[in-house]
């Protein structure tokens, strides 16, 4: 029983066992990683296949619940007729204009209320009361104000974007590192240049989060905007298709809306990394 304390006696394969076990574990870890990746790749095709099977089995009404092949056919027709480009351009124009105006005004107001207790007191409560009102609730009054013009649609998107950007800028400005402000002051930075040199950049990570959230919001609000009467646009097309019982086109429209908003978000995420270049 003398050798019971030696490691060799405890391990059946002796000293050489350690690296062998390690390599095996690493291999199995890599394998499970690959399996998870493969599962990720089949997720959408699998979903489409199940959908196709259900539609073809006629478990549900195929007019209300068209098969993916029917959706694809409708989408192709939409694209080849040239209407898709027209709709996409009309929608993107509204989103871009509304997003731009809402962001600029939002950042401006955020700097104002974040820096000055006076403006924070004056505008803060008002913004906080207006902020939770969903843009869609304004559709009826917007039609009265703007008629069917583009102004009303852009107004709704501005409304949706503004509050998010304002709030994130306001918070970012309030959380500005006072140490950096002091450092700038002792280096002789004049008061009027503090905002450009320190405050805005210091708040930028917060502002970027607000701007990214606002990308999603601007697409939600697009739906409300095109509900307020339009002559082109992706959600306009969806409504029209619904009235004509073209359910394939309805689904194609939904997919287009999802895809465009997804791409916009990805693009913004890539840009955001460059915007906050020092992180």
């Amino acid at each position: 029983m003398a050798d019971i304390s030696t490691p060799a006696a405890l391990s059946p394969r002796g000293a050489g066992a350690l690296p062998a076990v390690g390599a095996k574990r690493r291999r199995s870890a890599r394998l499970s990683q690959r399996i998870n990746m493969a599962v990720g790749l089949v997720s959408i095709p699998l979903f489409l296949m199940v959908w196709q099977l259900i539609a073809q089995a006629r478990i549900v009404n195929p007019i209300l619940f068209p098969a993916p092949t029917e959706v694809a056919r409708a989408a192709m027709e939409w694209v080849t007729s040239g209407l898709f480009v027209e709709d996409a351009v009309a929608s993107l124009k509204r989103v871009a204009t509304g997003y731009f105006v809402g962001s600029v005004v939002g950042v401006g107001c955020g700097l104002l209320t974040g820096r000055s207790a006076f403006f924070s007191g004056l505008l803060g409560p008002l913004f906080q009361v207006l902020r939770p009102i969903p843009p869609i609730a304004f559709v009826s009054i917007v039609i009265l104000w703007f008629g069917l013009s583009e102004g009303g649609k852009v107004f709704l998107i501005v409304w949706g974007v503004f509050f998010t950007v304002w709030l994130s800028t306001h918070l970012g400005v309030q959380k500005v590192d006072q140490g950096l402000v002091r450092a700038a002051q002792m280096l002789g930075t004049p008061r009027r240049r503090l905002v450009g040199e320190v405050v805005l950049l210091s708040a930028l990570p917060f502002i970027v989060v607000g701007l990214r959230t606002a990308v999603g919001i601007s697409f939600y609000t697009l739906v409300a905007a095109e509900l307020a009467g339009a002559f082109a646009g992706i959600f306009y097309r969806i409504q029209l298709a619904q009235q004509n019982m073209q359910t394939g086109l309805v689904f194609a429209g939904l997919a287009a809306l999802g895809l465009i908003s997804f791409i916009a978000d990805r693009c913004f995420a890539m840009m955001a990394q460059r915007l906050v270049w020092w992180r």
């Binding site: 590192d177 140490g179 950096l180 002091r182 450092a183 700038a184 002051q185 002792m186 280096l187 002789g188 930075t189 040199e197 320190v198 950049l201 930028l204 270049w277 020092w278």
Partner: peptide, 27 residues
């Protein structure tokens, strides 16, 4: 505060978005 009195704080408090050169050139 004023540029006639340079201050070094306990934490460096450098501007994180500026290079070393731009930080020193700020004043």
């Amino acid at each position: 505060p004023g540029p006639d009195r340079g201050v070094v704080f306990q934490q460096p408090r450098l501007f994180p978005w500026k290079s070393v050169r731009a930080n020193v050139a700020h004043g």
